[in-house]
Design a binder for these strands. Structure first.
Length: 348
DNA sequence: AATTCGGGGCG
DNA sequence: CGCCCAGAATT
């Protein structure tokens, strides 16, 4: 039995029952693939179900305000995926409601790269293009004993070529599903159970006892420490002020309290010096106190945010203040959502 | 060719 | 605490 047949046989026995495996509709497949980029199935699954419910067709998605899409994406991270998803939906509708039906055309859609184009093309149209995701890198590097770094230019080229040579042109969809599922369920990153692996005899890494060494990845983790002092405005009627993040960079397009960046903790006097209060509160009198003496730590893959929340009670109403319900209905990043849940508990 | 985009789960 | 996840866009 060749590589692909073996893989597909394993897949038939061990595949998980996932909703996007019951459809060949490119829209639903596309949706699932975008949601699952750099995201575990268990984390993405509830989002997929909610998106299908809220936007049953690409036309529904295109017609929605981008803010609605971001709100539904809230908490999933990598928010440019949601923005690009919406942009691409509009692209499709503008193109006469025609969804691209091949790898090359799929690549033209915003947010669809090499992997996603191959996934949709193979799953929906049975085009024989190999997917190469994190699972595929791991499976191939181990079975074939390849130590080229998977995130180097050479590695990307080498693994893509090998993956394409291995794909069964008769069963592109099953093959691609199978190799990824195999990586996710059997050839896992840590402590794979090689004793029940159908490729044990073929696997170079297992024979050479190099499972823990493969795949090789060049690591570059620079974590930047940031200190954010958020200003939680509370007006006499209980309204507050949010501002939208810039359209680029981290948390683009999401909402949060206005904040100032500092080098660490601040005294109230230092805060009032750092903030252009006149601009925010336009002459209105206020008093402020810090909500948390110790910073709330919010960790991201490349940032560690030390967050301080200053509760600022104003003596009069403000023009640009919105209700708490209004604030909570905006798309928020997890740090914001967590604070609001703690500060303004939902009353049932 | 590198860096930048989140958040959560696991050992 | 570091690594990884159905990667893509930007610099």
């Amino acid at each position: 039995m060749n590589f692909s047949n073996k893989l597909i046989s394993w897949y038939q026995l061990h595949k998980r029952d996932l909703p996007w495996r019951h459809t060949s509709d490119p829209y639903f497949i596309w949706l699932s693939e975008i949601i699952l980029q750099q995201t575990r199935v268990n984390q993405g699954l509830p989002y997929y179900l909610r998106f299908v419910e809220a936007f049953p067709s690409v036309q529904d998605l295109a017609a929605a305000p981008q803010e609605d899409v971001l709100k539904l994406w809230q908490g999933l991270g990598y928010y440019s995926r949601a923005r690009n998803l919406h942009t691409a939906a509009v692209q499709v509708v503008d193109n006469g409601d025609t969804f691209p039906n091949n790898y090359k055309e799929l690549l033209k859609l915003k947010g669809i790269g090499d992997y996603t184009a191959a996934a949709i093309a193979s799953f929906a149209y049975n085009e024989p293009v190999a997917v190469v995701d994190g699972n595929v890198y791991r499976v191939l590097s181990r079975i074939f004993g390849i130590s080229t770094p998977i995130n180097s230019t050479d590695g990307i080229k080498e693994f893509k070529k090998l993956a394409q040579e291995l794909i069964d042109p008769k069963h592109p969809a099953s093959h691609n599903q199978a190799i990824m599922e195999f990586g996710a369920m059997q050839c896992v990153p840590k402590n794979p159970d090689c004793n029940i692996c159908p490729f044990q005899k073929d696997c170079v890494a297992f024979q050479d006892e190099r499972i823990t060494e493969l795949p090789v990845k060049i690591k570059k983790t620079k974590v930047l420490n940031l200190h954010h002092h958020y200003m939680v405005t509370v007006t006499p009627s209980g309204k507050t002020i949010l501002q939208e993040r810039p359209q680029s960079g981290i948390w683009a397009g999401l909402y949060e309290f206005p904040f100032v960046e500092a080098k660490g903790a601040l005294l109230p006097s230092e805060l009032t010096t750092a903030v252009d209060y006149e601009n925010v509160y336009s002459g209105v009198r206020f008093r402020e106190s810090v909500f948390n003496q110790e910073p709330i730590i919010h960790k991201l893959s490349h940032r560690k945010i030390h967050a301080y929340f200053w509760i600022i009670h104003t003596e009069s109403e403000l023009e640009n203040a919105i209700t708490i319900e209004g604030a909570r209905s905006k798309p928020l990043h997890v740090l914001m959502e967590r604070f609001m849940t703690q500060f303004w508990p939902l009353k049932s």
